[in-house]
Simulated assay, not measured.
Amino acid sequence: MVAQLHLPALTEQFEKDGYLLIPNALPAEQVERLNLAIDRIIAEEPESLAYNVYHSVESDPAILELIDHPQLLPLMVKLLGYNIQLHISHLTVRKPNPADFKTATSSFINWHQDGPHPSFPAIGGLTSTYYIKICYILSDMSEPNRGNTKVIPGSHRIPDFKPNDYDVNTPVEGEVAICGKPGDAFIFPQNLWHAGSPNRTEGFERRQLFIGYSPIWMRPIDYHTASEQLLAGANPLRRQLLGDISTNYFNYYVPNLDQVPLKQYSDH
């Protein structure tokens, strides 16, 4: 399991580079349990070279467990504040596709920043951080050309930044392919320029699970209201992450302290 994290140093690195790579975020047995869940999930989908499963926390308890990861959740509070919620749970699976066959769902994503259309407001050519994703790597992504996510470090701090080419297949100055082993995790905000490259390596399947967090006053992507299935047995921390803090929606903007138990991590 991941060692105790030094949050101030990680926060400084995140602000500078726009991403973090956390080795051994998940133990091997948890990776195995997640992959068994993914096997079942994609077996219920139409056969494809590429799978995109949104709202995946509803699909299996093993995925739901990730939203309150005991080491990474305090880091999310450090980066985003304590008034946060689950924003998105997006499972991506990419089978080898060296011939670049067209798929029903995207098998790669060109360079972009995340966000709505029209985009988040910018001041002086810069967009604030509105949400942050943790990507759990669940297959061997230790080499490039396996469908790795690419990032441009520091691009979130450059006013009016645009890559010299939006095509993920064209090398971009300063790009980094995130390479990691099963159980590693990398973290990035929506305003960092990033892309999802094709998987062109025979014998390797890309499996990545994105768990995103946003302020609780934003509408999450997964659902408007968490289901009773998700809320069943949820402790106060998880209930907050599932957006169930009050029937008075004013509290989503100005919560009472007893409605946001994640505050316990804010002084770490």
Rank of each mutant, 00 (worst) to 15 (best):
L20K: 06
L7F: 05
V53Y: 03
R33D: 01
Q30A: 06
E58V: 10
L36G: 00
D39Y: 01
H55G: 10
T11W: 03
E32F: 06
H69M: 09
P8T: 01
A25R: 05
D39I: 00
L64P: 00
T11K: 07
I63S: 10
K16W: 08
P70V: 10
I42Q: 06
L66C: 12
D39C: 02
A43M: 06
E32R: 13
R40F: 03
L49I: 04
D17S: 04
I38W: 03
E45L: 06
I22P: 07
P70K: 07
D68L: 01
Y19D: 05
H69L: 08
F14H: 05
I63H: 05
L34T: 09
D68Q: 10
E65S: 13
E45W: 06
P8G: 02
E58Y: 02
D60I: 07
D17Q: 02
D68I: 01
Q71T: 13
A43R: 12
E58D: 07
H55R: 10
I67F: 00
E45T: 09
P70I: 08
A43V: 07
A62H: 11
I41K: 07
H55F: 05
L21D: 00
L36W: 00
L49H: 01
V57L: 07
L64F: 08
D68K: 12
I41V: 15
Y54I: 15
V53P: 02
L20E: 10
S59L: 13
H69G: 10
Y51I: 05
H55L: 02
L36E: 08
E65N: 11
S56G: 08
E29A: 13
L21S: 13
G18W: 00
L64W: 05
I67P: 01
P27T: 03
P8L: 05
E12M: 14
L10K: 01
P27I: 11
T11Y: 01
H69F: 01
R33L: 10
P27E: 09
S56C: 11
A25Q: 09
I42R: 05
L20D: 04
N52S: 11
E47S: 14
E47I: 11
Q13C: 10
K16E: 12
R33T: 10
V31G: 05
Y51H: 12
K16M: 11
I38Q: 04
A43F: 01
L64R: 11
A50G: 09
T11V: 09
I67L: 06
L66W: 03
E32C: 08
L36I: 06
Q71G: 12
P8A: 05
S48A: 15
E15W: 08
T11D: 02
P23I: 04
D39E: 04
A9Q: 07
E65T: 09
D60T: 12
Y19K: 06
E15R: 15
L20V: 03
E58R: 09
T11C: 03
E44Q: 13
E47Y: 03
E32S: 13
N35V: 00
E29T: 14
I41T: 13
L21H: 10
I22C: 10
A62I: 08
L36A: 14
G18L: 04
E47L: 14
S59R: 15
